[in-house]
């Protein structure tokens, strides 16, 4: 996966990812029009399919709303990189098929072209030529992500066993 980095700070909560007032809807495509609007009103115009959202600590804290990762995904975000994620956001992202990588240390700046290897848990900054290691995702999570989310994974596999069993 490859895309341009959009860099933001710490503690970005689910209300800033997608304000609650837009979430009382079943039309998920409509969420893209308001993604990150309180944080950066220009984001939705700048983001290209496959781009990489880079944040600091505790990304996705706040409510349990699954529309937060969905809004990012439908807006085109390919991967979210953060130092660490709020736990409900993390599991919701995996469940809806939005790759999330915990990268404790990196030199990514806004606009940097970045390559991501999900299997290896590796983040490569093309500008600086440096590689950074992410916390390795278990294989089953990568499989869920590759399938496009938990619903698609279950339809494909029809089973609830973990791979390593």
């Amino acid at each position: 996966m490859e895309g341009k980095a959009h860099v933001y700070g710490d503690n970005i909560d689910t209300d800033r990812i997608i304000p609650g007032k837009y979430t009382k809807t079943l039309d998920t495509a409509s969420l893209a029009a308001h993604v990150l609007e309180d944080l950066d009103p220009e984001f939705r115009h700048k983001v290209k399919v496959g781009d990489i959202l880079v944040a600091g600590d505790n990304f996705g804290c706040g409510s349990s709303r699954e529309q937060a990762p969905i809004a990012l995904k439908v807006a085109g975000v390919g991967v979210v990189v953060a130092r660490y994620f709020a736990r409900i956001f993390f599991r919701n992202a995996i469940n809806i098929g939005l790759p999330v990588l915990e990268v404790p240390d990196h030199d990514i700046e806004a606009g940097d072209p970045v390559t991501i290897d999900l299997e290896k848990g590796e983040v490569f900054n093309q500008r600086s030529g440096k590689r950074f290691q992410a916390t390795q995702l278990p294989k089953v999570m990568i499989d869920i992500l590759n399938a496009g989310g938990l619903v698609a994974y279950l339809k494909e596999h029809g089973t609830y066993q973990l791979n390593e069993e």
């Binding site: 409510s63 349990s64 709303r65 409900i88 599991r91 938990l150």
Partner: peptide
Amino acid sequence: TDSHANTYGAVGAVGNAVGVTDAAVAMAT
């Protein structure tokens, strides 16, 4: 499907908040 599902720990259960997908999968399986 609400963040304060942690409340269930009061009786010695594991109570967990989840998203729509988790709930849907659990409703099915």
